[in-house]
Nucleic acid binder design. Structure first.
Length: 509
RNA sequence: GAUUCUGUAGCUCAGCUGGUAGAGCAAUACACUUUUAAUGUAUGGGCCCCGGGUUCGAAUCCCGGCAGAAUCACCA
């Protein structure tokens, strides 16, 4: 860190010496008893009853207006902001006015932590305020916070002055963003509530939350480039997981009927407003179920989340209003392509599919098999058009090496993806539990790899061994938690729903 | 990875065809016991992202870095 201090930082450091001179510890160790919060006071204070006459509250000083022998301050705690009224006489100890004249008027800065005790009242202008009787300094801020102010016009429209908006500063110094920008905390609290809702729902239905390895010998369960690392004692490479699917299925083999994990996954790929190198996927696997059951179960979950967060199933996302009311629309991928292009691709050969892709100016090459070409057609021409929640069903077998073959449609598998607002939010299937078929599918992947597909899967022999011991029919799903959080909080970028989105390291000085 | 735009005070931003810096808020000092973007008066604060070049002279023009944003490509 730079040794260079700004004028304001030097002044704040000098104030520490003043505290010392006055015998006040600017970083006291003892606890400060808090008996309420700002939101409670604003909600519960009744000027007729004169309740809340002994409140004790602590937080960060975010505004200070000195008025000679009195002062108004804004105190911000976890729940919001409350005004304080501080008068010189109230803080006096006999004839000693040090606390007001020195501490409040000179040494306290915006950003400092303070604790106060007093009674609640309403000012002339009707603002609920704490009349401070006791004042305790709790912690000095040596760096000045950006000062963001709000004004309201007659219509009640809020104007924000000097907003702290530079995305780089906001993400690198999220702690400042959280302090200064109202609404940021709200987004993250909603994310937490969303995860709690999911956990409750899964637990209610018999789900068992588990943890499986992040460091894996074989990065399986998805098609993606992994991060690689090295274990010194064993002198072997390890991969950071790109998915946890194969481990959860091993647990189904082991006799658990319903397991789930919020899995932090890592993929060594590009980053943009919908991709972070580490991201969270919820996966759950339920024995003796198929993908139809999974659709029913999952749409109810989404409806529940919407209700828990917004009290309604209609949610505004950007320009769109999305209805999370179950049931969701269901359509086969081939039907979806036919709907958009007018071409029936179900009987087409690989070369014809490649020609069709070229007709739509899609970027294709010879390493792409039939399945990948269909996937290309769908994701380029169709995916973005599904705004309302829609289950896209029955994918080509080539793209789905871990999925059970369709019970009646040749060449397809029992898989669905859930599209919302033009994005894939979930991916699920009737799990492939035939070990001989699974081995053959892995071998297909090896051939793709030999053709140059750098995202084809590795063979996981231990996983095959597990399947050979027998796995019950099972349905499993993966849900992109960050993307779901973006939808549910109406945020346009993944960085807004991750506390600390990945960024290039700051240059050290 | 490609293209476009951006980088000036703690924060938000001005700064023209080149003449070595400005505003508001914040800070400092004084006044003010119900203010609320408090007010009034005064004051201080800058490696103009970094490194080269052109020039008598560069925040400004040119080249090269670095960092960020937006769009596109790959992916969830």
């Amino acid at each position: 860190m730079s040794e260079h201090l700004s004028e304001q930082e030097i002044i704040r450091r000098d104030k520490l010496k003043e505290f010392e001179r006055l015998g006040i510890d600017p970083y006291p160790a003892d606890l400060f008893e808090v008996n309420c919060n700002s939101l409670q006071i604003l909600n519960e204070y009744d000027d007729e009853q004169k309740n809340l006459q002994e409140v004790s509250i602590a937080g960060r000083l975010m505004a200070l207006r000195l008025m000679g022998k009195a002062a108004f301050a804004g105190l911000e705690d976890q729940r919001g902001r409350i005004q304080l009224y501080i008068s010189r006489n109230d803080l006096a100890k006999g004839e000693d006015f040090t606390l007001f004249d020195e501490v409040v008027k000179k040494l306290v800065d915006i950003g400092d932590f303070i604790g106060v005790k007093g009674y609640v009242f309403k000012t002339k202008t009707g603002e609920t305020t704490i009349h401070v009787k006791e004042f305790k300094f709790l912690g000095k801020a040596l760096r000045p916070l950006p000062v963001v102010k709000e004004t309201k016009d007659e219509a009640g429209n809020v104007t924000i002055h000097d907003a702290f908006v530079d995305p780089e500063l906001r993400y690198r110094q999220r702690y400042v963003d959280l302090v200064v920008n109202t609404g940021v905390k709200e987004t993250f609290l909603k994310r937490t509530k969303m995860i709690q809702t999911i956990r409750d729902y899964l637990n209610e239905h018999g789900g068992i939350e588990v943890d499986t390895p992040v460091l894996q010998n074989i990065p399986g369960g998805a098609a993606a480039r992994p991060f690689i690392t090295h274990h010194n004692a064993l002198d072997v490479p390890f991969y950071l997981r790109i998915a946890n699917e194969l481990y959860l299925k091993r647990l189904i083999v082991g006799g658990f009927d319903f397991v789930y994990e919020f899995s932090r996954n890592f993929r060594n790929e590009g980053m943009d407003r919908t991709h972070n190198p580490e991201f969270t996927v919820l996966e759950y696997y339920v024995a003796y179920k198929d993908y139809f059951w999974m659709m029913d179960f999952t749409e109810k979950l989404f409806e529940k989340i919407a209700l828990a967060l917004h009290g309604t199933t209609e949610i505004k996302v950007g320009e769109q209003t999305i209805s999370f009311k179950a049931p969701f629309k269901r359509i086969g991928i081939l039907e979806a392509i036919q709907e958009k292009t007018g071409t029936n691709v179900s009987e087409m050969k690989e070369d014809d599919l490649r020609e069709l892709c070229k007709k739509y100016h899609l970027d294709v090459n010879n390493t792409m098999g039939k399945g990948k070409l269909i996937d290309e057609l769908f994701s380029e021409l169709c995916e973005g058009t599904f705004v309302q929640p829609t289950f896209i069903m029955d994918y080509p077998v080539e793209m789905s090496p871990l999925t059970k073959k369709h019970r009646s449609k040749a060449g397809l598998v029992e898989r669905f993806e859930l599209m919302i607002n033009g994005k894939e939010i979930a991916n699920a299937y009737s799990e492939l539990n035939d070990p001989i078929d699974q081995r053959a599918r892995f071998e297909e992947q090896v051939k793709l790899m030999e053709r140059g597909d750098d995202e084809a899967m590795f063979i996981d022999h231990d996983f095959l061994r597990a399947l050979e011991y027998g796995m019950p029919p099972t349905s499993g799903i993966g849900i992109g938690i960050d993307r779901l959080a973006m939808l549910m909080t109406n945020q346009p970028s993944i960085q807004e729903v991750l506390f600390f989105p990945q960024m290039r390291p700051e240059k050290s000085e």
